[in-house]
């Protein structure tokens, strides 16, 4: 499976989450490489780590406002930190599920984890250029970052 297909799987997972869980489609911007500095991290980030045929990290990072509106769309009234963490965790879980289904046994995918705070540093191999896929939803902007060698 090529890196291109793998990124496609992750993008499809995120878009599908917006279509089905949030019931309002998101739009993918033009992907680009994070050169020179680490990609921007928003308030909440759900990530999975991958080893095996490829190594690296894939994460969905979104601002608090966006996640709060997503929760509202999902008929949730609890906008607590825990619930926002659960939401990005759920997106990361979708990334993990799709990856497990599509990539096969050559990939080992970690349990999804969640970090909060825009000053968080997410570690990745310095030999790798992260590919940032902008995810636009309503007036909000999130990023899907794929950093695999």
């Amino acid at each position: 499976m090529s890196l291109q297909s793998e990124i496609g799987t992750f993008v499809a997972a995120v878009l599908n989450y917006f279509d089905t869980a949030v019931q309002q489609p998101a739009v993918v911007g033009t992907p680009y490489l994070a050169l020179g500095k680490a990609p921007e991290v928003f308030d909440y980030t759900g990530m999975i780590r991958i080893s095996g045929k490829r190594k690296g990290v894939v994460y969905f990072t979104a601002p608090k406002g966006m996640l709060s509106v997503m929760l509202m769309r999902m008929q949730e009234t609890d906008m607590s930190d825990a619930n926002l963490r659960d939401l990005v965790g759920e997106v990361a879980n979708t990334l993990s599920g799709n990856a497990r289904k599509d990539f096969g046994r050559n990939f080992i995918i970690s349990t999804p984890s969640v970090v909060a705070g825009s000053s968080t540093t997410i570690g990745y191999s310095p030999d790798t250029r992260p590919i940032v896929v902008p995810i636009d939803w309503r007036a909000y902007h999130a990023n899907l970052v794929v950093c695999l060698n």
């Binding site: 090529s2 291109q4 033009t30 992907p31 490489l33 250029r129 896929v133």
Partner: peptide
């Protein structure tokens, strides 16, 4: 935007 994934991979 999705169609640019192959482009950015090849750019990399």
């Amino acid at each position: 935007g999705n169609d640019f994934i192959p482009i950015v991979v090849k750019l990399d």
